[in-house]
């Protein structure tokens, strides 16, 4: 579904992805963790070319993302992206937020898009917030609208860039619950997160990144019980103790 082949990326002089090779299978849930600045957000931002890569091959759903002639609009419609800061459109209601792209990109009739939008918002537990503006919603609600916005495009892949990092602790679970449900339905997901409980319970594999390199990738049992690299051990010891 997603294939990185020796992918490199630079921000000016800064080498932020150093030869990433990685395959994600359909219906797989991959959690990516690592210290800040390790390149994990950049990694998933490359998948829908929010960031272009400079070297290597990146093939997503059969489309060659690294080639500049590839039509990204079509591919982006297949990939839902959830941001740390939600990035909901503040001038639109929850329902308008989730129906904009289906109407304008997928060219679905407004009525149909709205009934689908209602269905998905209900699914994430926001059936009573359809006509609220983002300013009237809590962080957890905002992030669930953002997930719904992705889902309304009926994507094949969902990418999550630290979806719970900007949330108050008591709101983290309501977002993770939606993601858990999604994983259960067989969605292909890459989740950048520090929620190790989520990684342990929900993911099929956990990847650890540091300094732009993919240090280790393993199923969660193995990853947490027997990390092979010292850097992974050090990282886990830091985040699992509190």
């Amino acid at each position: 579904m997603i294939e990185f082949n020796d992918v490199h990326k630079w921000f000016g002089e800064l080498h932020v992805l150093k030869g990433i090779t990685l395959r994600v299978e359909p219906a797989e849930v991959l959690v990516v963790c690592g210290p800040s600045g390790s390149g994990k957000s950049t990694l998933i931002r490359c998948i829908n070319r929010l960031e272009p890569i400079q070297k290597g091959e990146l093939i997503v759903d059969g489309m060659r993302v690294h080639e500049s002639k590839t039509n990204m609009t079509k591919l982006r419609a297949e990939i839902g992206f959830v941001f740390q800061q939600f990035n909901l459109y503040p001038h639109m209601t929850a329902l308008q937020n989730v129906t904009l792209a289906p109407i304008k990109v997928r060219k679905i009739a407004r009525k149909e898009a709205e009934s689908e939008g209602r269905r998905v918002l209900e699914k994430v537990g926001l059936g009573d917030k359809l006509h609220q503006y983002p300013a009237q919603l809590s962080g957890g609600q905002l992030q669930r609208v953002a997930i719904a916005r992705g889902l309304c495009m009926k994507p094949k892949i969902m990418l999550f860039d630290e979806p719970t990092s900007a949330l108050d602790p008591e709101m983290i679970n309501e977002v993770l619950e939606v993601m858990r449900q999604l994983a259960g339905e067989g969605m292909t997901m890459i989740v950048v997160t520090h929620e190790m409980g989520f990684a342990r319970e929900v993911s099929h594999r956990v990847a650890f990144m540091d300094f732009g390199e993919l240090i280790e990738i393993a199923p969660p049992d193995e990853f947490f019980a027997h990390p092979r690299s010292d850097r992974t051990k050090l990282f886990l010891s830091k985040i699992l103790t509190h």
Partner: peptide
Amino acid sequence: PGQKEAATSTGLSGLQQLRYVILPQ
């Protein structure tokens, strides 16, 4: 900039981003 990124990631074209997301704000 997150607004543009969100619009981009849902597949809206540059003009659509401008018309529905950037200009109204």
